[in-house]
Design a protein around this nucleic acid. Structure first.
Lengths: 136, 136
DNA sequence: TCCTACGATGGACGAAGTCCAAGTCAAGAA
DNA sequence: TTCTTGACTTGGACTTCGTCCATCGTAGGA
């Protein structure tokens, strides 16, 4: 994750304790926290950090392409730090557990030209749904 | 759409003017209205209809499998009456236009067992993103 | 060390959705 | 047809998630 901080600094990001803490909270695989969860964990390390700062920082990380935003359930958006390797998501319909998955092949290939209605299609976001081992 | 009303009645739905109006507002293809849009159109036909009633009715239609709920942008949920024929969605990244599309093949096939983490995967929701003819 | 523009703060605000107590009415019973 | 009743509707308060903004603080260059 420190390479993330390096990349951000290289792009002219002013490094503050708040931004560092948010970036650290997001470290890891299969991490899909809501903004409030990020804030709660950030507060443990930096008690004064404001909710608005977390929202601002998450928005910037998304704009920089370092984090992807997902809304799998229509409730709070979740933030996924694994943005550098494209992937999709597998969600448990019962408990909400989310895993990053890598389908084989190109998902755009299965959408024939006649089904594109003249759109220039550039990506496909897939949410696989089912039951996780614990809920099945 | 009147067959929808028949199906609902057959399932023991008490038919009220409010429910009828909501069902009528949702008629058609490529319809993807938000709850507030449904309410606005319902009010044109039945001025006293309450927002809560629209939410209740939409929730019931979803529970009955007659309407699918989608959240393509993390903002308000949208309601798609074309629930009887499985399909996916193609969304314009610029203006938000949504079309129903039918990809070829089974989208579950491209997720290898090793990528399922023990989940029982039952469906795949796909959002294709790109630019519509008007925005390209 | 000093400056200053960029970032953080926190409280108000807004959008989307839920909840609930009280009133209304669809549809079966008589 | 009228009666009855439980299901449905109403509207306003409330919750959650997120944004905005005026003011304050500070990272990092001079």
């Amino acid at each position: 994750m420190s390479d993330l901080l390096e990349r951000l600094r290289a792009r002219g990001w002013r490094m503050t304790s708040q931004r560092r803490v948010v970036a650290e909270v997001l470290a890891g695989d299969h991490v899909h926290l809501t903004a409030d969860e990020v804030h709660a964990r950030a507060v443990e390390r930096l008690p004064e950090i404001a909710r608005a700062t977390v929202y601002n920082t998450l928005g910037e990380l998304v704009a920089l392409g370092e984090v992807v935003e997902l809304s799998t359930d229509g409730r709070a958006k979740r933030y996924d730090p694994n943005a550098r390797r494209p992937h999709q998501h597998l969600v448990c319909s019962n408990c909400g557990l989310i895993r990053d998955v890598h389908p084989t092949g190109d998902l755009l290939d299965v959408l024939p030209p006649a089904q594109r209605f003249g759109f220039t299609v550039s990506k496909a976001d897939v949410t696989y749904r089912g039951l996780c081992p614990g809920c099945a």
